[in-house]
Lab assay of single mutants.
Amino acid sequence: MSIQHFRVALIPFFAAFCLPVFAHPETLVKVKDAEDQLGARVGYIELDLNSGKILESFRPEERFPMMSTFKVLLCGAVLSRVDAGQEQLGRRIHYSQNDLVEYSPVTEKHLTDGMTVRELCSAAITMSDNTAANLLLTTIGGPKELTAFLHNMGDHVTRLDRWEPELNEAIPNDERDTTMPAAMATTLRKLLTGELLTLASRQQLIDWMEADKVAGPLLRSALPAGWFIADKSGAGERGSRGIIAALGPDGKPSRIVVIYTTGSQATMDERNRQIAEIGASLIKHW
């Protein structure tokens, strides 16, 4: 067993022997301040990774656009098919120029040779490549099948209805392509620590998230040296922004954090800054 596999296998073990965790309302004060600064709703939840206990939450059962955070769930569904012998990570998928959609920095470079399922998941999570996500959605049967996968996990809230990039439209009061912070946090925890996926697939999923290259201005910008984070960000229309993450000190994750916002007129930089400040408060009061 590799060191990384050992780390993920012992996530519940280490967490069980940690000192009790206590909620700190100071972080919620910052979440509410972010709402004021952005002029928009902000949803927040913080779960203990081992027990699933909610440590703090704000608007945990209000719907927010998922945006690209759905790509972690998508690759979880792909990995479940791999575990069941219905898919192979090494299978190569070929596609054409007509398949390319807006923001496809990886797939646009491989029109000639195609990409493997493993490479597509890596591109979808680490670079948020939209064509990679659409190609992977095709392998599982489309958005409705991802929703069905989530329902089978016990998540009857999260739903995907459309493809990239239309799913980022974020129309107010439109339930399409949305989740709730509580539902997303619980589902992410199941994917990373539950028995739904094999140990190898859980490790692969967290490795992809740990290698995320496009979430630097968010929670990662607030992390002290030595902290662990595996995350996936999302951005959408109407001032929408979000991030889902597993993080913790001492090089291992111990909490799940989900943050979503929508309806702001603020710039992307300002949305990023507010999420980073929430992260800084979380870490300060850990």
Rank of each mutant, 00 (worst) to 15 (best):
residue 72 V to P: 09
residue 32 K to L: 09
residue 92 R to M: 10
residue 100 L to G: 04
residue 128 S to W: 01
residue 220 R to E: 03
residue 82 V to M: 11
residue 85 G to N: 06
residue 42 V to I: 07
residue 117 V to F: 04
residue 279 G to Y: 03
residue 101 V to Q: 06
residue 180 M to A: 07
residue 179 T to V: 02
residue 259 I to P: 00
residue 120 L to Q: 03
residue 84 A to N: 13
residue 108 E to R: 15
residue 222 A to C: 06
residue 100 L to V: 12
residue 226 G to Q: 14
residue 60 P to I: 15
residue 74 L to N: 02
residue 45 I to K: 01
residue 267 T to C: 11
residue 147 T to V: 07
residue 83 D to E: 09
residue 43 G to P: 00
residue 162 R to K: 09
residue 33 D to R: 08
residue 266 A to T: 10
residue 234 G to H: 00
residue 161 D to C: 06
residue 80 S to H: 14
residue 197 L to E: 04
residue 126 T to P: 03
residue 229 I to W: 01
residue 61 E to N: 07
residue 241 R to F: 03
residue 228 F to C: 08
residue 241 R to E: 03
residue 151 H to A: 07
residue 138 T to C: 15
residue 241 R to I: 03
residue 34 A to Q: 12
residue 197 L to G: 05
residue 279 G to L: 05
residue 78 V to P: 01
residue 157 V to D: 06
residue 269 D to T: 14
residue 130 N to I: 02
residue 118 R to F: 09
residue 183 A to Q: 14
residue 148 A to G: 09
residue 88 Q to F: 15
residue 280 A to Q: 08
residue 178 T to K: 03
residue 217 P to Y: 07
residue 169 E to R: 09
residue 267 T to H: 09
residue 100 L to Q: 10
residue 260 Y to I: 05
residue 148 A to Y: 12
residue 159 R to I: 15
residue 108 E to A: 15
residue 142 G to H: 06
residue 63 R to Y: 15
residue 114 G to H: 11
residue 44 Y to V: 06
residue 233 S to P: 05
residue 216 G to E: 08
residue 74 L to W: 00
residue 257 V to R: 00
residue 143 P to Y: 03
residue 110 H to Y: 15
residue 262 T to D: 12
residue 249 P to V: 11
residue 202 R to G: 10
residue 34 A to W: 06
residue 225 A to N: 14
residue 160 L to Y: 01
residue 69 T to A: 03
residue 80 S to G: 11
residue 30 K to A: 08
residue 98 N to Y: 11
residue 33 D to H: 07
residue 225 A to R: 09
residue 234 G to M: 06
residue 131 T to L: 14
residue 221 S to I: 14
residue 263 G to A: 09
residue 119 E to V: 02
residue 154 G to E: 13
residue 102 E to T: 07
residue 52 G to P: 04
residue 167 L to V: 13
residue 209 M to Y: 00
residue 42 V to F: 07
residue 172 P to E: 13
residue 256 I to R: 01
residue 194 G to H: 11
residue 223 L to P: 02
residue 258 V to K: 01
residue 280 A to D: 15
residue 134 N to A: 02
residue 270 E to G: 14
residue 229 I to T: 03
residue 140 I to A: 15
residue 256 I to T: 03
residue 88 Q to D: 15
residue 133 A to F: 02
residue 192 L to H: 04
residue 259 I to M: 11
residue 83 D to V: 04
residue 79 L to Y: 03
residue 78 V to N: 03
residue 57 S to N: 09
residue 284 K to W: 10
residue 253 P to V: 11
residue 24 H to C: 09
residue 194 G to N: 12
residue 77 A to S: 11
residue 234 G to K: 00
residue 39 G to E: 12
residue 59 R to Q: 14
residue 98 N to S: 07
residue 214 V to K: 07
residue 42 V to N: 04
residue 240 S to E: 12
residue 77 A to G: 07
residue 136 L to A: 12
residue 282 L to F: 06
residue 220 R to Y: 02
residue 49 L to T: 11
residue 61 E to I: 10
